[in-house]
Each structure stands twice: as structure tokens, then as C-alpha cells.
């Protein structure tokens, strides 16, 4: 089959960062105070962006993609996450 056949189909492949580094959308950035953090992992589960990762059982924010919605800070049961204005 010649290669130039069906070159353009309306198909996509999975891609992280399809809208670029969405961290640039952020106005407020979450900051985790690890002294307060009780490692409950609620922030990981409720993050709408899937941009809080687990590293050695500790939540770690992926600032490349975090849009700064603040859900993690709002839901943290011990107030270990605060939102800091970035711009």
C-alpha cells in the first residue's frame, strides 16, 4: 500500500500536556507545609488536574500542570496547603 494513502485521519494519541504547560494558567499556587501534612492523600484524590503526585508517600505538586484551582487547599483537613499569589 502506498504511504501517501490515508495520511490524514481524525485520530489522536494520548498525550500529557495536550494544552501545554497548564501551570502557566495559574494565579495562585498551592504550597504544602510538610510539617503539617499528615499524608492522608486527600489532595491527591481531589485534584481535578491529576497534578499532585505521590513521592515516598508524600504529596508533591506538579507545578508544570497545576492550574491553581485551590481545591487541594480547601479540602486539606489539617490546613497544610496554602495558596500563594504568583502573579
Amino acid at each position: 500500500m502506498p504511504e501517501d494513502v490515508n495520511k490524514y485521519l481524525p485520530l489522536s494519541k494520548p498525550k500529557i500536556g495536550i494544552s501545554g504547560k497548564t501551570g502557566s494558567w495559574r494565579i495562585f499556587a498551592p504550597e504544602i507545609n510538610y510539617e503539617k501534612c499528615v499524608k492522608c492523600h486527600i489532595c491527591v484524590v481531589v485534584c481535578p488536574e491529576a497534578s499532585i503526585l505521590l513521592e515516598d508517600d508524600r504529596p508533591k505538586i506538579d507545578y508544570d500542570y497545576c492550574k491553581g484551582c485551590g481545591v487541594c487547599a480547601r479540602e486539606c483537613p489539617v490546613g497544610a496547603i496554602t495558596m500563594r499569589r504568583e502573579r
Binding site: I16, G17, C47, P48, E49, V71
Partner: peptide, 29 residues
Amino acid sequence: VKDLAKMEDLLLKGNAACAGCPIGVALRT
């Protein structure tokens, strides 16, 4: 919650949803 936190995410970060979009939570889960 700890189980959920460990599971693989099939909705990928850097998507085009608004900040705080509930789809993120609903679809990830």
C-alpha cells in the same frame, strides 16, 4: 483515599479543562 491516591491516572494532566473542573475528579475516579 490512600488506595485511590495510588491508582494510575488515565485522564492526563495538562488537559484543557477549566481550573477546578469537576470532570477532572469524576473522570479520573
